[in-house]
């Protein structure tokens, strides 16, 4: 088990485990299904909640993320897109790595808000170890403090696009 430059184990995701015969038979229909409905896991890792409520708002009727097949899920093992907001605090960092490893491949990570991207106003705090891309590879950045739901929506569509590319690869 070799660790890459981010310091997490590549084998923990279960990507190797599922490469059996059954998976090879089911690969095409499974990927077809996943491409259609990428589920999201949303976690706040030490922000002010502002990004969290704006991310929640895109599930509400006015924006309605569900029409693109995206559904908020509580379990990282069910998730395809990780939506992370907030500067990363010292206590949450190990959990965050575990959540990343538990999410099955292929996966897309979104960093929501200035805090997740650059640590924002908390840049010189003693308890903040972020930004997020020092801890895990990030695919989509949505800047703003907090970004408007329209911006998060746009980022989500790009993440879905990226996810489809990864699935088809």
């Amino acid at each position: 088990m070799d660790n890459n430059r981010h310091g997490y184990a590549d084998n923990g995701s279960g990507a190797d485990m599922v490469k059996g015969t059954l998976y090879r038979i089911l690969e095409k229909p499974l990927n077809y299904a996943r491409r259609k409905s990428p589920w999201i896991l949303h976690l706040d890792t030490g922000g002010c909640n502002g990004c969290a409520i704006e991310t929640f708002a895109i599930l509400s009727p006015r924006y309605d993320m569900e029409r693109f097949g995206a559904l908020s899920k509580g379990n990282p093992r069910h998730a395809d897109i990780l939506v992370i907001s907030g500067a990363v605090s010292r206590k949450i960092k190990p959990m965050l790595k575990r959540i990343y490893e538990q999410t099955p491949e292929p996966k897309v990570v979104m960093a929501i808000g200035s805090c997740a991207i650059t640590k924002g106003v908390f840049h010189d705090s003693y308890n903040i170890v972020g930004p997020l891309d020092r801890i895990m590879p990030v695919d989509v950045y949505v800047p703003g403090c907090p970004p408007k739901p329209e911006a998060i929506f746009d980022g989500m569509l790009r993440a879905i696009e990226k996810f489809r590319e990864k699935v088809e690869k």
Partner: peptide
């Protein structure tokens, strides 16, 4: 898990900068 040390940060910012910091304690009660 979400401790950011804001009280300590406030002692290093001036009174005007602290308005924006205090707003970011909570996004719901900003």
């Amino acid at each position: 898990y979400i401790h950011r040390g804001i009280e300590e940060l406030m002692q290093r910012r001036n009174y005007l900068q602290n308005i924006f910091l205090s707003e970011r304690i909570c996004g719901i009660c900003s």
